[in-house]
Design a binder for these strands. Structure first.
Length: 562
RNA sequence: GCCCUCGUAGCUCAGUUGGAUAGAGCGGCCCCCUCCUAAGGGGCAGGUCGGACGUUCGAAUCGUCUCGAGGGCACCA
């Protein structure tokens, strides 16, 4: 709808230019067509006259008059008014909304999908947790954000690759290995022989036991068998990594999250990607040697100081493999790339981006996009739940899913802007009651199903085709509000994907559910007048479809009864 | 000290990229089942959009300063 109105306005501007009312060389201002905030202002409002007035030094209202006169006729538009300082308000015809309902029926599950991504490839990297422990709430937020973004990209015509990057060989992994080894030797976290930075959680003991029992684990397509030899640290490391990777995968699966690519940091070294990246940076003259180390001149790209790439002991600092990894994404044809990252890592962005620019291989400046999310405070019983990995006090993602359910956990973690700190109230999330907003949306879906189930029981026929032919019977205010909400869905999917903001979909689904519940409480759908009955049923079935599609984009179920 | 994010109702948060009278949920008070699940609906109360100055037709939104919260500022990852 919005796009069609925009086209009409553009034609009107062109027409005024032809009539020399507006200069032909006018730089087109970035005007907007937006949903009117209140129904008194019609359906859509356009601010173009006010912006043009400034450029053409004309009176905005007079210019609006001329623009309106030049607007081509269109069946969508019932009337156009000028209001306030020069807004052009569009009032859509009932036919415009009825056509939208027919669209929903025609396209079904595909309603709201678009081809704006044009089949280009986007790589979405998320979770990327190192296999040193179970996933916690923060990983959960990361997982839902990445998963919903992936779904949104898919819905807007992108070819999506979901990618999980992890370190299987660094300092943390060595620490994991010695922790498991200590446990396998019967040393407890408070004993004197316990490694200083060892991971203290109970899961370490579980891994140690499985290793000693020579169990086998399957992770990332490989089978690793515990050798049982307490002195073989390398075997312990491989077994521990595989064990924790498998646990994480089980948790993610329970959360409805999956990946196309698992990328190992160690492969960047074994495949020569790190050397390639370093060579690229050195060859382009963006590095220098100082104090026995190799430095990257990141200050050339807006960083506040230069960064060490290769330490004096010959090993690389962590951001070098990061640059190599992103280079690999670029080389694998990811025209767009999104990395979901906790905001505590935001300091690394500048140097990774600087490194990618310094490679000089044509990577655009804004590539990749980083979606940063703030930390989570978990509340239980009115008190903050403290999380400390090292101390072993842990609220795992699995705990949350078990307690609150997949849908509620996902909804709570996606319903807010990523860059606001969020408070996760476990008591609220696990409450199976009307306090819980996710059920409110799902209930709307279930209610439509319930109505359809009851129609034959009450002796009513359901003929949706007849309903679609009588949509003009939907003439109440409640019906108009619902029709309007439904028509917003394609715009919202587009906006949520383009702005990397899945939360706006979550917020809007609540509004759609509210419009439906209000309607439900105001009118009977199952009435004797067949044309009216079927028209109303067609409307609520369309609502059910859009609820289902929207819930699907958030990875939430659409239950038929509750 | 420097950098990033945030600050909107008692609480938790939206606010369509600068638009018209700032919204929702929870909590509080009041009302609605002879009726398709009341896991619902309607209403009332509740605001100096942290503060100040600026930019312009117009600011919660942009800029500068300031206060507050969180995070980042290692040859740690």
């Amino acid at each position: 709808m919005k796009a069609q109105l925009r086209e009409l306005v553009l034609q009107a501007i062109k027409s005024l230019q032809n009539d020399t009312i507006l200069p032909a060389d006018l730089a087109l201002p970035g005007f907007v067509i937006e949903r009117a905030r209140s129904r008194e202002h019609g359906d859509f409002a356009c601010n173009v006259a006010m912006l043009l007035a400034k450029l053409a030094r004309a009176n905005p209202r007079e210019l609006a008059e001329k623009l309106v006169a030049a607007l081509p006729a269109n069946a969508l538009v019932e009337k156009v008014e000028i209001a306030g300082p020069g807004f052009i308000n569009f009032y859509l015809s009932p036919d415009a909304y009825h056509a939208e309902v027919r669209q929903i029926f025609d396209r079904g599950d595909a309603y709201g999908r678009s081809e704006s991504g044009a089949g280009k490839t986007v790589g979405v990297e998320f979770v990327s947790a190192n296999p040193t422990g179970p996933l916690h709430v923060g990983h959960g937020r990361n997982a839902v954000i990445g998963d919903c973004l992936s779904r949104l990209f898919d819905a807007t015509g992108w070819n999506v690759k979901r990618e999980f990057y992890y370190n299987d060989a660094g300092v943390q992994i060595a620490n994991l290995a010695i922790s498991v080894q200590a446990r396998a030797r019967g040393i407890l976290p408070d004993d004197s022989g316990w490694p200083e930075k060892g991971y203290r959680g109970d899961y370490i003991a579980d891994v140690a036991r499985a290793y000693l029992d020579r169990e086998s684990v399957v992770a990332d397509g490989e089978t690793v068998v515990g050798e049982g030899d307490v002195d073989n640290l390398d075997a312990i490391r491989r077994f521990a990594v595989a064990s924790l990777r498998r646990e994480q995968d089980l948790d993610l699966k329970a959360f409805g999250v999956g990946f196309d690519v698992y990328f190992l940091e160690s492969s960047l070294y074994s495949d020569g990607k790190v050397e390639e990246a370093v060579k690229g940076l050195v060859d382009h003259g963006h590095t220098y040697e100082s104090e026995g180390a190799l430095w990257l001149r990141t200050t050339d790209y807006g960083d506040d100081k230069d960064r060490v790439m290769r330490k004096s002991d010959g090993t690389y600092t962590y951001f070098v493999p990061d640059v190599a990894y992103h280079l690999s994404k670029w080389q694998r044809g990811y025209e767009n790339a999104v990395t979901v990252l906790g905001s505590d890592h935001h300091g690394t962005l500048a140097r990774v981006k600087a490194g990618l620019q310094a490679l000089d291989v044509g990577i655009p400046k804004g590539w990749p996009h980083y979606v940063l999310y703030q930390m989570i405070t978990v509340m239980r019983g009115g008190e903050e739940v403290k999380i400390s990995k090292r101390a072993g006090s842990y609220l795992t993602l699995r705990d949350l899913i078990d307690e609150a359910g997949r849908d509620a956990t996902r909804y709570f973690l996606i319903a807010r802007k990523t860059d606001s700190q969020l408070i996760f109230d476990i008591d609220l999330a696990r409450s199976q009651s009307n306090d819980n907003p996710v059920y409110y949306i799902q209930y709307a879906h279930a209610r439509v199903c319930s109505v359809l189930r009851q129609a034959p029981e009450k002796g009513f026929t359901v003929d949706l085709q007849e309903g679609l032919a009588h949509l003009d019977r939907l003439d109440t205010e409640h019906e108009q509000i619902l029709l309007t909400e439904l028509s917003k869905y394609p715009e919202l999917v587009e906006a949520a994907a383009a702005n990397l903001e899945p939360h706006i979909l979550a917020a809007w689904l609540r509004e759609l559910a509210n419009a439906f519940h209000t309607y439900y409480n105001s009118y009977q759908f199952l009435v004797d007048d067949a044309a009216l009955r079927n028209a109303r049923l067609a409307l609520v079935v369309a609502t059910r479809q859009v609820l289902k599609n929207g819930l699907g984009l958030l990875g939430l179920s659409a239950p038929e009864s509750m």
